[in-house]
Amino acid sequence: MEIAIFGKSFGDVFYENCRQLFDYLHKKETRIFIYKPFYEFLSQKFDLKPGIAGFFSSSEDLPQVDMLFSIGGDGTFLQAVTLVRDSGIPIVGINSGRLGFLADISRNELPVALEEIDLGRFKVKELSLLELISPTGLVDDFNYALNEFAVHKQDSSSMITIHTYLDDEYLNSYWADGLIVSTPTGSTAYSLSVGGPIMHPGSQGIIITPIAPHNLTVRPLVVPDNMELTLKVEGRGGKFLASLDSRSVVVEEGTELKIRKAGFPIKMVERTDQSFYSTLRNKLMWGADRRN
């Protein structure tokens, strides 16, 4: 098997798990390609220099491997998406911290999960993306988001107005601090924190969630994912922030933003005994009772 490993920095608590990961891969004679800055972190921080087949530094030199292991949290997983893009390489999310919906293989589960992957006992689920159609190249050369596209006011003063259209039909003018357009995957991220609904990853919908709307009767809305959204933003500041997941830029007022479901999914490796519902119970502590 050939795999790529992508990661950022992590704390001392995950060192032993990381060493076990490389030991296992070497025992299985796995060809490893590693993100060069991550390799430098391992060698400088922990003097860990695993044997590898090669380096990669961007999506352009990422080889066509069987899987990509993302080591970190959900933010690291989202960055891994910008490397994998439309290559079809499945991503394995390994959580080096505590909470993670995308990086859902915990430190304690890692040994068993590696055995399952080696034996082919896993599922590959497809996650939908959002595509920012125009303007192209607004954030970078990858105008896609796994969690959400969002617009925000740039400063802490006045709110902005987001004129919103669905398939060119006028929906609403949101007077708010911002607006989130979310995938089902992103429903447990930023959208959830401002009162948006939780959606099953397999749901074919897009969530439109206002951020601190001035009109309290304005609520989150779920629309079919075959619709194209158009946003026209205005405000006193003359500029606003636009973001695709964690990548954001300042945009001039009057810029028309068009968003739709992307034409390709991201593939994510999931353990066979893992499900969306068990993730909700574990991460959101559903059913937990301090009295017990």
Score class of each variant (00 low, 15 high):
1 M>S: 13
2 E>A: 07
6 F>V: 03
7 G>C: 05
10 F>A: 12
12 D>Y: 05
15 Y>I: 03
15 Y>P: 00
17 N>A: 00
19 R>A: 08
19 R>P: 02
21 L>C: 10
24 Y>S: 10
26 H>G: 08
27 K>C: 02
37 P>Y: 13
38 F>C: 03
41 F>R: 06
45 K>R: 12
46 F>P: 12
47 D>L: 07
50 P>H: 13
53 A>E: 09
61 D>C: 14
62 L>V: 09
62 L>W: 06
63 P>W: 12
64 Q>C: 11
64 Q>T: 02
65 V>W: 02
67 M>D: 01
75 G>A: 15
77 F>H: 05
77 F>L: 15
78 L>E: 08
78 L>W: 03
84 V>T: 11
85 R>K: 03
89 I>Y: 10
90 P>D: 04
91 I>Y: 14
92 V>S: 04
98 R>C: 00
100 G>F: 14
110 L>I: 01
111 P>K: 10
114 L>F: 14
116 E>I: 03
117 I>Y: 12
120 G>I: 02
121 R>E: 07
124 V>P: 01
126 E>A: 06
128 S>Q: 12
128 S>V: 03
131 E>A: 07
132 L>S: 08
132 L>C: 13
133 I>N: 01
137 G>F: 13
138 L>P: 05
141 D>N: 09
144 Y>G: 07
145 A>R: 00
150 A>R: 02
152 H>R: 12
153 K>F: 12
157 S>W: 00
163 H>A: 07
168 D>F: 00
170 Y>N: 06
176 A>N: 01
176 A>V: 09
178 G>S: 02
183 T>G: 06
186 G>D: 14
188 T>Y: 03
190 Y>Q: 13
191 S>N: 15
191 S>W: 02
191 S>A: 15
204 Q>N: 11
214 H>V: 02
217 T>F: 15
218 V>G: 11
220 P>G: 10
220 P>H: 10
222 V>A: 11
223 V>N: 15
226 N>C: 05
234 E>I: 02
241 L>T: 08
242 A>V: 08
244 L>I: 05
245 D>T: 10
247 R>Q: 08
255 T>R: 06
257 L>N: 07
282 N>T: 14
282 N>R: 15
285 M>W: 09
286 W>K: 10
287 G>T: 06
290 R>D: 11
